[in-house]
Amino acid sequence: MQCSKDVLIFCRRRFTPGTSWCVVRSDASNQALQTALDYACAAGADCSPIQSSGLCFLPNTIQAHASYAFNSYYQRMAMAPGACDFAGTATVAKTDPSYGSCMYPSSPSTAGGIPAPTPPATVINNPNVPMTPLTTIPINGDGSTGLNNPGLTPPVPTTDESKASLDYIVATSSMSVMLLLVLSFILHPMWIS
């Protein structure tokens, strides 16, 4: 593409060879985009520009906000293969999606770099307690691999914390305690003699 002198800056920004951005797929549902957007913001994307006071808040649509968050995450992960999937709701684009004063990062340095991993908690070795090895927790926290990409899908709850579940646990625990009490009264004469 030939760039005239009048649009040279615009042309360089929009068509930089080797640069890519992560944006939403046009066929992604709003519900899937909201889930993926929540995940991206929690997993390290810089979502402050899409807050109500941010430069990328308008247009106030799930598609625009998710595109910005997906790209922020993608750039912070150094455009790693698979960092632009979000359970099939995102795709890599070669054209800069920036508009007006909303500038999409185009490299890890403009996206704030790769987030530093959180250091493990300090462990004091008590000689009376055996040490257990530290384990690495995947990015999504529950060990699942997701649809197409390890660690890039929102975590799925693994416990049921509903009132019905709590009632079942209390009832089961109470039954166990009652059974132990009954057995202790039955077996108590045997223990004494």
Rank of each mutant, 00 (worst) to 15 (best):
M1E: 11
S4E: 05
I9Y: 04
I9K: 13
R14Q: 10
F15R: 05
T19P: 00
S20I: 04
C22N: 01
C22Q: 00
C22W: 02
V23N: 03
R25G: 14
S26I: 02
S26F: 04
D27N: 12
A28S: 13
S29I: 03
N30C: 04
L33H: 05
Q34V: 01
L37H: 08
D38R: 07
C41I: 04
A43N: 00
D46W: 02
C47K: 06
S48V: 09
S48N: 14
I50S: 05
S52F: 09
C56D: 11
F57H: 13
I62Y: 00
A66G: 10
S67K: 00
S67W: 01
F70E: 09
Q75M: 10
M79R: 03
A80M: 15
G82P: 04
D85E: 08
F86R: 07
G88Y: 06
G88C: 08
T91I: 11
V92T: 00
K94I: 12
D96C: 06
S98L: 09
G100L: 14
S106M: 07
P108Q: 03
T110H: 06
G113R: 05
I114H: 08
I114T: 14
I114G: 05
I114E: 05
A116N: 10
P117V: 11
P120I: 09
V123M: 03
I124S: 08
N126S: 06
V129T: 12
P133I: 06
P138M: 12
D142E: 09
S144M: 12
N149C: 15
N149I: 05
T153R: 01
V156E: 12
V156W: 11
P157S: 11
T158H: 13
S162C: 12
S165C: 05
M175N: 14
S176A: 15
L181G: 08
M190H: 12
S193C: 13
